[in-house]
């Protein structure tokens, strides 16, 4: 079975977010009413697995091994069968 996995990596709460703060400041300068901006990165991975559970387990492992630094990152995974 083919699955599409989305891994969204975002900053853990409590860490300062200079990229979001800079973006928010610029958006305000452009005239928008903005309180905060959070920045995250989304990886879309297409993979073959025997079930959605197996696909999630593999994606969980690849997130920990490469896509996420546990010091500063939180992440969520969503799996869709294609």
């Amino acid at each position: 079975m083919k699955y599409s996995a989305k891994i969204e990596v975002s900053l853990k709460p409590g860490h300062s977010n200079p990229e979001g703060e800079t973006t928010a400041r610029l958006l305000k300068e452009l005239g928008y009413t903005v309180e905060t901006v959070d920045v995250s990165k989304v990886y879309t991975v297409t993979l073959n697995a025997s079930s959605a559970t197996d696909a999630r387990a593999v994606v969980e492992e690849m997130s920990k091994r490469l896509l996420v630094n546990p010091t500063k990152d939180d992440y969520t995974i969503s799996i869709v069968e294609q």
Partner: peptide, 12 residues
Amino acid sequence: YSQATLTTNNPQ
């Protein structure tokens, strides 16, 4: 897994 990180400068 890393016990630290080197991340985006602040100020950016």
